[in-house]
Each structure stands twice: as structure tokens, then as C-alpha cells.
Amino acid sequence: MGEVIVITSGKGGVGKTTTTANLGVGMALLNKKVALIDADIGLRNLDVVMGLENRIVYDLVDVVEGRCRTRQALIRDKRYENLYLLPAAQTRDKSAVSPEQMRKLCEELKEEFDYVFVDCPAGIEQGFRNAIAGADRAIIVTTPEVSAVRDADRIIGLLEAAGLRGPRLLINRLRPEMVKRGDMLDIDDILEILAIDLIGVVPDDEKIIISTNRGEPVAAQENGSLAGQAYRNIVRRIMGEEVPFLNFYRNRSLLGRLKKLIGFGG
């Protein structure tokens, strides 16, 4: 029996879809059987981030309305052993699916997959209610900004009210050099304010944009970016492994070390 994990945030554009794609790929690379559900009906995106947009035949709404079997709508990502995508419908709206239907679908997918990741739409309305309906766990994505952290707090409250306990926080787009000069909320600041456990930190990385251009999530590149490494670490934490958090603040350059030595910056 697998597990359903919803990737949610409240605020839009903070990186839910990017996270879902990368965790899916990272999980598949560890030989787990993974299904990704794009629950953002009307604003389908996960397909293009994964590079699977040309292979869609059926979608989530076709499945819940019985026009096809779940199997037929699942697109297999041929680059990996066991990675599947269930795309969102593009020409419908969030009310085309009910929480009950999502719950049923998740139950069905759990029978066959080790992990099911649900990419939640922004907001706290029906799309959100649908996306969390069948979830066993939740990952809340935020960026180190006042508005995003505020919305994350609201989501934590709503998840709790819905009976989804112990959500974990993913801090996305951290910029270490800004944190260093005191111009960005640090990991500890955010954790102190939200009082929830951290699942990982992903740095702001232009490789994410480049890889999204190509439709190949960064987590796929073995010795590539720091962001890719961060995603692969998060995947192992989801599986229950204890993986130390990446240190983004190391002074790598000689100049940096010298500055620290004489007490300038650091």
C-alpha cells in the first residue's frame, strides 16, 4: 500500500509544480513506483514541466467521469523505469472534480504505486479541497518572503482542520548571499514563525529555469546542480532516511575565508 503526498502552498508561483516534478523524478530514480497527479484543473502545467505535453490523450476529469480507465490516462515517462503522470483537464474548472472522487482515485492509485504526489493549485478554495482530499501527508512549499510564509501559515491551519497532521515545510528559492547580508529571511526565522518541521531547502537556481525549458527536471541530472541535490535529499527524507541538510553558507573562496578571518562580513 502506497502513500499519497500533496504538494501545496496557498500562495501561487512559489514552486509547487517544480517540486512535484522533481520529487517524482527523484523518487523514480530510487526505483520507486511513482504517480504524479496534476490537480490544477484549468491551468495544467505539470505536463510541460515534465516534458510530457505531447503525449496526453485522457485527463483527470475523463477518469473521474468514467470516459476512460485510470490506466489509460496515466502517461508513462519513458526516461524512467516507473514514473507516471495523470494530467489535469485544461478546458474545465475546479468544480469538475469533487473531494470524494479524488479520495477514490487516490485509494485506487495507492494500490499500485509506492508514492502518489498531488500537485495542488494555488488558493484555498475547491481546487485545494480536492487536492488534499485523498492525501496521507502534506508538503507545504514557501519562499522566504512575508506573503508566502503568511499564506503557508493559513494552509497549516486548514490542513489541521481537515485532519491532515504533521505537514512538512519545503523552503524554495533561498538565496544564501541575500541571507548573509541580512536581506532575506533565514531558514531558522521561518521555522520559528511557522513552528513546523522542515523537509528541505531548495536554493534559487537558474538551472531550474534552464531544465524547465527543456522539460527535464533538475533532479534527473546526477552530478548537476545544488538544487538537484536538494531534491534528491528531500526524496530520501520522505522515505524516512535521515539526511543532513545542505550547507549553503560555506565560504568557498579564499577571499571569503580571509574576510571572515578579519571579521568582515561572514
Partner: peptide, 9 residues
């Protein structure tokens, strides 16, 4: 600015 942000949050 991050201390201002934290306080406002």
C-alpha cells in the same frame, strides 16, 4: 530588512 520582515510577519 529580514528583521523587519520577521517582525511584520
Amino acid at each position: 530588512s529580514k528583521d523587519v520582515a520577521k517582525e511584520r510577519l
